[in-house]
Design a protein around this nucleic acid. Structure first.
Lengths: 340, 340
DNA sequence: GGGAGTTTGCGAAACGTTTCGGAAGATCAT
DNA sequence: ATGATCTTCCGAAACGTTTCGCAAACTCCC
């Protein structure tokens, strides 16, 4: 087995406390020669500090917990989570924090989630896009452990990082409006998730601001997934009066919508324009490339890590939790047919 | 602060050992009525076991460590790692293991990597695609901690899960050969990574088996990245005698090659055929869709977790570490020009 | 009623650290 | 020489568990 601080102490006939001080360079000083001998023996014995023991006494683990959204398997495949985790992982590395990923996502085990907050293995937790139905809310409140969330439902006292959805949606729709579109449909995401709700509301608000009547049948539900986007698009194209443009609440649904449009013999953007949201990597490689609203997802993740670190250290995080959206115009949007 | 086992014991005027037995249901039994009272008080006090303390005494953390490849930032964005992590995370959840991701990837800190193996926070480690230059090899050997690797360099005594690269490459090349291609180039990946080396060797072996002479200038280096694929493709197309087909060691390079082909006014597959490797999600959505060799990356990750769990529990893992490849024929390959 | 066996439960050690209190010795100014 | 201050370093407590050894109190059978 690995050697311990005690082995070093015995070898040198000194006390463990002295060894600890020498190894850590503090909080009390030890004479240089003693220190040198300790380090030499430590190297010789290939000593590795036991972080668990340290965590127990210091109460700090230098590890942050990450709780991914929802219950289903293969959550990890979503581009959104992918980018968010990328930001979290990279920033965590910079901040010298390891990441403990909470993988037990089945419904029953979800209950245990609170435990991770206080079971000593992590100093704080980042929730990624927790649902409305999620208990995360109350749990986070009940323990006093530091936590922040990304694109989650707003919870009193929990710092939530997200993109400026209102502005992003407005950009996308204004772009379509400026091209001449008036028949603009929306494919919404999972309505138990904050981003989906806000994007739907912003869509409604935009129509109102332009005095375009809201039509129930022009709003489809796509569950944030390719397949959902397909189905919603199919429904829209089957309407007696189909829209000339579709704004999708994320890129996966936009990709699904795109595929379905072709499957229904509609050309994009000639017959119908499509706009996505997220600027996930795929949108630049599909044909045609998709106009989308970029949100700096990885930056959100990184900012969340920085803020969490500050909470852990009891300094007030001051970074703004709202990140700007940016319209990326590509090839999936053009003027509507009748204007050409 | 959270309550401890001791609080429960005091409240009931019993010993902590009894409480521990009651809570864990073992290893000794306690009368049902006592047990019930303990559970009631635990609930009342919102008791959460401290996993760190438990880990210290049991030596088990129910957490597995994951060490991602290489040094650069944004490793996490690669589809390969994405799929591998997806498999690892999902299977870990099923096996009731959390995942500790080792994020400190800067070169100096990489040295510390050995520590994670024995610092008590994890029961075992999965290395994902470690390089040749990596110290992971010796480190893994030196500690006796359980570890496995995915697509890494083969190390004596370390179970390595990977796809059957030879067979996969042979399928891809045979497909091109059957279509009539004889001028087949290869864009290789990072040659400090096992998959890249084996795929290059398999490419050479295939040419030999068909008595096609090997031409140095038909092998480009693409570093497994889109940009590298672009550059390599550009070089190939500038040759006095360009190839009619290109086999890329991964899909990202294939996508780069595809983009560059169009940028150079070559039609795919009419002017040049392209085959990728990995079947990463993007290949089905680009235009044209890319013929590729599918490898069950997520399954590799899942198998690695299962095997690691068995190593931890001292049972011999028996699952085969070689996974089958499968050719997915899509739209980026066709007969070469001269045969049409 | 006496031994064997079972049930119940207490106390304490152990895991590997960090860090505090304080003791012993050295240094120095007066 | 005397106290004051500084240096060096030891012993021990603490973190929250698990689990072992042991003892007391029951149960049961002859």
């Amino acid at each position: 087995m690995g050697s311990t601080i005690k082995d070093i102490a015995e070898r040198l006939n000194i006390s463990v406390s002295t060894v600890s001080y020498a190894l850590n360079g503090g909080p009390r000083r030890v004479p240089d020669d003693v220190r040198a001998r300790v380090l030499a023996v430590a190297k010789e014995l290939d000593y590795r500090p036991n972080r668990v023991a340290r965590a127990m006494v210091t109460g700090r683990s230098d590890t942050i917990g990450v709780v991914p959204p929802e219950v289903s398997e293969d959550v990890f495949l979503s581009p959104y989570l992918h980018l968010a985790l990328n930001g979290v992982f990279n920033e965590a590395g910079r901040q010298h924090q390891d990441v403990l990923l909470f993988t037990r996502c089945s419904e029953t085990e979800r209950e245990e989630m609170a435990s991770i907050l206080v079971d000593g293995r992590v100093d704080g937790v980042i929730f990624i896009a927790p649902h409305f139905s999620e208990k995360a809310v109350e749990l986070a409140m009940s323990t006093h452990a530091p936590c922040v969330s990304i694109s989650g439902v707003p919870v009193e006292g929990v710092l939530t990082f997200c993109v400026d959805n209102e502005a992003g949606v407005a950009m996308a729709l204004q772009h379509l409006y400026d091209l001449g579109h008036r028949k603009i449909a929306h494919i919404a995401g999972r309505l138990d998730m904050q981003d989906a709700i806000v994007r739907l509301q912003s869509y409604q608000a935009f129509l109102r601001s332009k005095r375009i009547p809201y039509r129930e049948e022009w709003v489809g539900m796509g569950q944030f997934m390719i397949e959902g986007g397909r189905r919603a698009m199919n429904a829209l194209l089957s309407l007696p009066e189909p829209p000339t443009a579709v704004f999708c609440a994320n890129d996966e649904m936009a990709i699904g919508a795109l595929m379905e449009a072709y499957a229904c013999n509609r050309k994009v953007p000639d017959d119908i324009s499509i706009v996505g949201f997220d600027n996930s990597p795929g949108t630049a490689h599909v044909y045609p490339t998709i106009t989308t609203v970029a949100q700096p997802i990885s930056d959100l993740g990184a900012a969340a890590v920085r803020a969490l670190k500050q909470l852990i250290e009891n300094t007030e995080p001051e970074e703004s939790p709202i990140f700007p959206a940016q319209l990326i115009v590509r090839a999936s949007t053009s003027r509507p047919m009748e204007h050409k």
